[in-house]
Nucleic acid binder design. Structure first.
Lengths: 207, 207
DNA sequence: TCATTCAGCGAACAAGTGTTAGCTTATTCG
DNA sequence: CGAATAAGCTAACACTTGTTCGCTGAATGA
């Protein structure tokens, strides 16, 4: 009843996942990762890989799902943390960059395969981005009372800007990183302010 | 003096460039393009490739340079066209999306290799983005009188948003594309408005 | 206990890759 | 004209890749 077999299986499955993540870097993308190299680093024979994943693509999608989940949880907790009086924008950006800093390879995976050659990948990552955007949109509606369509467009802009600044953050030096955070915050504030002003103008324009 | 030799050389060089661009698609990125396939499509022997480029990377950088140049010229002409009374933002977005629509493979190249595995690529594309941003920044300073640092940050946000919406535009259906243009314009307006408001607030806060 | 399951392995395959060496042959130039 | 140049070619190399097949041996469960 210990499940010693299933237990071992999970272990090497994790070994494969770890090996894959470990080989990701600035110079190596998931797309040009080879099944054989992953297997080698995981300490198994190439053929054993198939006992766990049908494909490299299936492995990749697994990674995307896991990462997307943790990222979403993180952002949600960031918005909760905000009650302590700091600006939501500030907290969110800092948390996001912290994620990037602590999971550079995972973030690189998302960043690259977002526009990669595998449709399945692109769709999976678009889905994750959509989750983030939708949650942010809802938050905006509830906390500022913006109309839905404006909230949506604003949320998309916020996610886009944060994500892209995260990409630059990846390769930045320590002090460049600090100003990058500040600039990102400023950009998000621009968007937020502009969206509010837009709604006010609409209302005073008789409609 | 006709230079019949050099002339022929330019011709096959162009054939190589064309072959490479032709093989780019949603499913095939430059990174996993093979020298042999490019040579085959260009109608030359694999080894002849080396008479023109040291590397696939060198070929890629050539493409990036050419594309960046045309894109920049396009955006500049868009800002010139603006004198006719339409909003700059509107014209710029429309011109950019037109570029994306007419050069999907080129844009894909920029999009992907921007976060690709080749440092030379990343730097080359960052350089192109920097050109675009710098020109826009200068334009903002001259036309709105914003202080330099704010103009810079605003320009970065505008370029980022436009570029990313272009990525989505690539795979969008015809009518989705229209709303995408509208949304992009709205996002850019948010940023512009927010930046202006920020400066005004700074000034009225006694400084 | 004994048959079954199944994670993992080694060998082998057909393909495709980048790159070198050396030849051909039309252009170039003194 | 005649030597030099250089674009393009064929053949061959040493690899790496994904994937199939059939085997082993330990965990499983009736």
């Amino acid at each position: 009843m210990a499940g010693i077999r299933a237990q071992q299986k999970q272990k090497t499955r994790q070994a494969i996942i770890h090996a894959a993540l470990n080989q990701l870097s600035a110079e190596q993308s998931f797309a040009n990762l080879s099944l054989r190299e992953v297997a080698r680093e995981a300490g198994i024979a190439p053929t054993s890989f198939y006992r766990h994943f049908k494909d490299m693509e299936e492995l990749g999608l697994t990674l995307v799902d896991e990462c997307g989940l943790t990222l979403r949880q993180l952002m949600r907790s960031a918005r909760r943390r905000f009650d302590e009086g700091i600006s939501v924008i500030e907290v969110s950006v800092e948390v996001f960059m912290e994620f990037v800093e602590q999971n550079p390879n995972i973030f690189r995976l998302l960043l690259r395969e977002r526009s990669g050659t595998s449709r399945a990948f692109r769709e999976a990552i678009a889905r994750e981005e959509e989750h983030l955007t939708a949650e942010l949109e809802e938050y905006l509606i509830q906390s500022t009372g913006l109309p839905g369509n404006v909230a949506r467009i604003q949320a998309e802009a916020l996610v886009t800007l944060t994500f892209n600044n995260g990409a630059e953050y990846l390769d930045a030096s320590a002090d460049r990183r600090q100003t990058l955070i500040e600039n990102t915050i400023m950009q998000l504030r621009f968007v937020a302010h502009g969206a509010n002003a837009y709604v006010l103008a609409q209302q005073s324009n008789g409609r």
